[in-house]
Amino acid sequence: MEMSMSSEEVIAQIKRLHGNGESLSKKYVKKSHPELMKNALYYYPSWEHAIQKTGVMTT
């Protein structure tokens, strides 16, 4: 399967969303950024793991 982002790009995109004040909830990202979600789940075992990898704190 060909991915459109590298794992580094996935992390950068998650950080960008967080920095812009967008929700990082799985439901929101799956709906508004499906390509990001698909790539994140390719590289990481779960969306939560991908967020943890960024080091951003979510509530």
Results as ranks from 00 to 15, higher is better:
Q13W: 11
Y43T: 00
M3D: 01
S46D: 08
V56S: 15
E9F: 08
K31G: 06
K27H: 10
K26H: 15
G55L: 09
K27V: 14
I11R: 11
Y28L: 03
L24K: 11
M5I: 02
M1I: 11
K31H: 08
R16S: 07
K26R: 15
S7H: 13
S7D: 10
I11D: 11
T54E: 06
M5P: 06
E2H: 12
S46E: 01
Y28D: 02
Q52I: 10
M1P: 07
E35L: 13
P45S: 07
G21L: 12
A12N: 07
A50L: 05
Q13H: 10
E2F: 09
V10G: 10
Q52S: 15
A40Y: 02
K15I: 08
K26C: 12
Q52L: 13
M37F: 06
A12Q: 08
E48N: 09
E22V: 14
Y28W: 11
S32E: 14
S7K: 15
Y42P: 02
V56G: 12
E2Q: 15
M57C: 07
N39M: 01
S46V: 04
W47M: 09
M5N: 04
E9R: 05
L24I: 14
Q52R: 12
E8T: 05
Y43W: 05
L41R: 11
E9P: 05
M57L: 12
Q52F: 14
S23Y: 12
M1K: 04
I14R: 09
V29M: 07
M1R: 10
V56F: 14
E35M: 13
Y43R: 02
E35W: 11
S46R: 05
S32N: 03
A50K: 00
S7I: 14
S46L: 04
H33A: 07
L24E: 11
E48I: 05
H33L: 04
M3I: 00
E8D: 09
V56M: 13
G19V: 02
E35I: 13
K30R: 10
A12W: 01
G21C: 06
L36F: 08
A50V: 03
H33I: 08
S6V: 01
G21V: 11
S25Y: 06
T54V: 06
P45F: 01
W47V: 03
M1H: 12
S23M: 09
A50M: 03
I51W: 10
M3H: 00
V10A: 08
H49E: 10
V56P: 15
M37Y: 07
L24S: 11
I51C: 06
L41H: 05
L41F: 02
E8M: 04
Y43D: 03
V29A: 14
G55C: 09
A50R: 00
S6N: 02
Y43Q: 01
